[in-house]
Amino acid sequence: MTPIQRTLLAIAAFVTLALGSFIYFIANWDSSKAAPIGGLTAQPTQHASLFSDSKNPGVWGSAPVLSSPHAGRMT
């Protein structure tokens, strides 16, 4: 067996193993054991700006700090 044939055989074995494990996964899937991805919700996070200065807010601008990322535009 030439080195090229061994390489092609190794590639074919890998592809066969990958496809076989994927088909096994799909065939044994039980949807009642897992929540759908669309049903997952992330909690809103709060973060501070690297350039904020609470003692002197005029240094880096006077942008309002929102109470949540989804609070909307402040007027």
Score class of each variant (00 low, 15 high):
Met1Val: 06
Thr2Pro: 05
Ile4Tyr: 15
Ile4Trp: 15
Ile4Lys: 14
Arg6His: 02
Thr7His: 09
Thr7Ala: 09
Thr7Tyr: 06
Thr7Pro: 02
Thr7Phe: 06
Leu8His: 10
Leu8Trp: 08
Leu8Phe: 06
Leu8Asn: 09
Leu9Thr: 14
Leu9Trp: 10
Leu9His: 04
Ala10His: 00
Ala10Met: 00
Ala10Phe: 00
Ile11Pro: 01
Ile11Thr: 01
Ala12Trp: 10
Ala12Gly: 13
Ala12Asp: 07
Ala13Pro: 03
Ala13Arg: 06
Phe14Met: 07
Phe14Leu: 09
Phe14His: 04
Val15Cys: 07
Thr16Met: 02
Thr16Lys: 00
Thr16Trp: 03
Thr16Gln: 03
Leu17Ser: 10
Ala18Arg: 13
Leu19Pro: 02
Leu19His: 03
Gly20Met: 08
Gly20His: 04
Gly20Pro: 09
Gly20Ser: 03
Ser21Thr: 13
Ser21Lys: 14
Phe22Ala: 11
Ile23Gln: 12
Asn28His: 06
Asn28Ile: 11
Trp29Ser: 08
Trp29Phe: 15
Trp29Glu: 08
Asp30Gln: 10
Ser31Trp: 10
Ser31Lys: 12
Ser32Phe: 04
Ser32Gln: 08
Ser32His: 05
Ser32Met: 04
Lys33His: 13
Ala34Cys: 02
Ala35Leu: 15
Pro36Ile: 10
Pro36Tyr: 07
Pro36Glu: 10
Ile37Gly: 13
Ile37Asp: 13
Gly38Met: 03
Gly39Glu: 10
Gly39Asp: 14
Leu40Glu: 04
Leu40Arg: 01
Thr41Gln: 14
Thr41Val: 12
Ala42His: 11
Thr45Met: 00
Thr45Cys: 00
Gln46Met: 05
Ala48Pro: 09
Ser49Met: 08
Leu50His: 11
Leu50Gly: 13
Phe51Ser: 01
Phe51Pro: 01
Phe51Asn: 02
Phe51Trp: 02
Ser52Pro: 00
Ser52Trp: 01
Asp53Val: 02
Ser54Glu: 12
Ser54Met: 12
Ser54Val: 05
Lys55Cys: 15
Lys55Arg: 15
Asn56Ala: 05
Asn56Trp: 09
Pro57Ile: 15
Gly58Asp: 12
Val59Trp: 13
Val59Phe: 11
Trp60Lys: 13
Gly61Trp: 03
Ser62Phe: 05
Ser62Gly: 08
Val65Asn: 07
Val65Arg: 13
Val65Asp: 05
Leu66Cys: 14
Ser67Thr: 01
Ser67Met: 03
Ser67Asp: 00
Ser68Arg: 02
Pro69Lys: 02
His70Gln: 02
His70Phe: 04
His70Met: 08
Ala71Asn: 06
Ala71Ser: 06
Ala71Trp: 07
Gly72His: 00
Arg73Gly: 12
Arg73Lys: 14
Met74Leu: 12
Met74Gln: 11
Met74Asp: 01
Thr75Gln: 07
Thr75Ser: 04
